[in-house]
Design a binder for these strands. Structure first.
Length: 256
DNA sequence: GCGACAG
DNA sequence: ATCTTGTCGC
């Protein structure tokens, strides 16, 4: 009765998904190819944010939300929801296969209905490069919609082969991040590759946010964008708004 | 074999 | 991911 819903996919399934991630990764661009000045963010007018929320205890029904905010005032200029049924469970390392479809649908809908508000970069709730195969949902979504994306995760995704001692890592965050803007680069021990950074986005919130490149942006630019969209809280406004709005949507609608 | 595991 | 009240600090 406890293991009736053991969602562990077979090794074959994991292998197929991994292969798909590796295939799509061939299209991944990790340099700035943005429509604004990457160094100063001059010309950055619209930033998007996406997130999904679920009704209590419901793993199937979800409400996806896409928010577009105007810079530098961070006012919402576009907001759209999509109530969908997810077919796969959450599996660490394969989040995109569960959530990317409704997000892509919202983005394409915006592109055809209100192209004037199409964002120059989209902040995604989850990781990009900071991923076992260096292709998390932020990168996945970016490649599929061919738009710059940045991954922003609230929790550190363990990658055993690269970051063995999580205990000392958590300590490192606390002892190296003193104020907003401080960051601690996440370098894989085995490969020496930079996966992303633990970034402190608030002076009151001690815990950092984990920023990694999604698609078409450098890590430096990703950090600037996250800092510039987090004037008050730990979570960047576009993602925070998508989270708040999608939850409000669920609360005000009787689903099921 | 055990433990760890974005949302 | 999701539920919840108070409470501490500026």
């Amino acid at each position: 009765m406890s293991s009736d819903y053991n969602h562990d996919p077979s090794e074959d399934q994991r292998s197929l998904w991994s292969q798909e991630q590796n295939d799509l990764k061939k299209q991944l661009v990790l340099e700035d190819a943005v429509s604004f000045d990457a160094a100063t963010l001059t010309g950055l007018k619209y930033v998007g944010g996406v997130d999904l929320s679920f009704p209590l205890g419901d793993h199937e029904n979800a409400v996806a939300c896409l928010i577009v905010m105007k810079m530098p005032d961070l006012q919402i200029v576009y907001k759209e929801f999509l109530h969908t049924k997810l077919h796969l469970p959450y599996i660490s390392g394969f989040l995109a296969f569960r959530e990317v479809e409704p997000l892509l649908k919202l983005i394409n809908q915006l592109k055809s209905n209100k192209p004037e508000f199409y964002p120059q970069v989209i902040l995604v709730d989850g990781n990009g490069l900071l991923h076992p195969r260096r292709f998390g949902i932020a990168s996945h979504l970016g490649v599929l919609c061919q738009t710059p994306t940045v991954g922003v995760a609230k929790n550190f995704l363990v990658i055993p082969s690269e970051f063995d001692d999580m205990g000392s890592l958590k300590g490192k965050f606390k002892e190296s991040l003193f104020r907003k803007g401080d960051d601690y680069k996440l370098v894989g021990a085995a490969s020496g590759a930079v996966y992303g950074t633990a970034l402190r986005t608030s002076n009151t919130a001690t815990n950092p946010v984990f920023v990694s490149q999604g698609h078409l942006v450098s890590l430096e630019t990703a950090i600037k964008i996250v800092l510039n969209t987090s004037p008050l809280y730990r979570i960047p406004e576009p993602i925070r708004a998508a989270d708040l709005e999608s939850r409000a949507y669920i609360r005000s609608n009787v689903l099921l």
